[in-house]
Simulated assay, not measured.
Amino acid sequence: MEPLGAAFGVLAVGFALLIGVLGAFLLRRYHLARALGTVDASIRLPPSGWRVGVCRYTDRHLEWLSLLSLSPIPRFRFLRSSLSVAGWRTATDAERTRVPPGAIIVQLTHDGESFDLAMQYDVYAGLSSWIEAGPVIGIGTWR
């Protein structure tokens, strides 16, 4: 095989792999966007910075999946009965470059640990309703 042909083959394989990975990211994003109970939300767990991702509601958990991953397994999972909303605020000037435009910062606690989610206000309304609509601890079958 000629050196030029071998170099072309290596470049073709590399390009095909790049297209395949890009296609897998787009397919995963499409499926996450179409699934029920998923919303765009960035997360910040102190002391780290903001991470872009998607939150997914289940009957018992709030799950956060990273957009920069191909894994179907949530990176963070919060038990619904242990979540509480501490409040919300507008993004600071420094945060506006790291969160989606028009997003608010929702302050949540889970088992005494606080973290922030950046989301649109209408998504926040749904999240707070979902948290508050859960059965009272001691009543129900899933807590």
Score class of each variant (00 low, 15 high):
residue 126 G to P: 00
residue 32 L to R: 07
residue 99 V to M: 03
residue 53 G to A: 00
residue 120 Q to P: 01
residue 46 P to M: 03
residue 59 D to L: 09
residue 78 F to S: 05
residue 31 H to S: 09
residue 18 L to P: 01
residue 86 A to G: 11
residue 97 T to D: 13
residue 48 S to L: 09
residue 78 F to V: 04
residue 68 L to D: 15
residue 132 E to D: 12
residue 61 H to P: 01
residue 84 S to V: 07
residue 142 W to V: 08
residue 100 P to E: 01
residue 90 T to G: 14
residue 68 L to N: 14
residue 133 A to H: 10
residue 5 G to E: 15
residue 118 A to F: 03
residue 50 W to R: 06
residue 109 T to K: 10
residue 108 L to I: 01
residue 67 L to A: 05
residue 89 R to P: 00
residue 11 L to H: 02
residue 32 L to E: 08
residue 95 E to L: 08
residue 12 A to Y: 01
residue 104 I to T: 08
residue 102 G to P: 07
residue 13 V to F: 10
residue 138 G to K: 06
residue 62 L to V: 01
residue 7 A to D: 09
residue 114 S to E: 14
residue 52 V to A: 13
residue 93 D to V: 15
residue 143 R to W: 09
residue 19 I to T: 06
residue 139 I to W: 12
residue 112 G to I: 10
residue 59 D to E: 14
residue 97 T to E: 14
residue 35 A to D: 02
residue 10 V to W: 08
residue 40 D to H: 12
residue 123 V to F: 03
residue 19 I to V: 14
residue 108 L to W: 02
residue 25 F to L: 05
residue 103 A to S: 15
residue 47 P to Q: 06
residue 54 V to D: 00
residue 120 Q to F: 08
residue 113 E to N: 10
residue 103 A to L: 00
residue 17 L to A: 09
residue 40 D to V: 14
residue 94 A to Y: 06
residue 49 G to I: 02
residue 8 F to Q: 15
residue 110 H to C: 14
residue 4 L to D: 12
residue 18 L to G: 13
residue 46 P to R: 10
residue 96 R to I: 08
residue 73 I to C: 11
residue 102 G to H: 04
residue 115 F to S: 07
residue 15 F to C: 14
residue 94 A to F: 10
residue 56 R to T: 07
residue 53 G to K: 01
residue 96 R to F: 02
residue 126 G to N: 12
residue 101 P to N: 09
residue 136 V to G: 00
residue 97 T to Y: 13
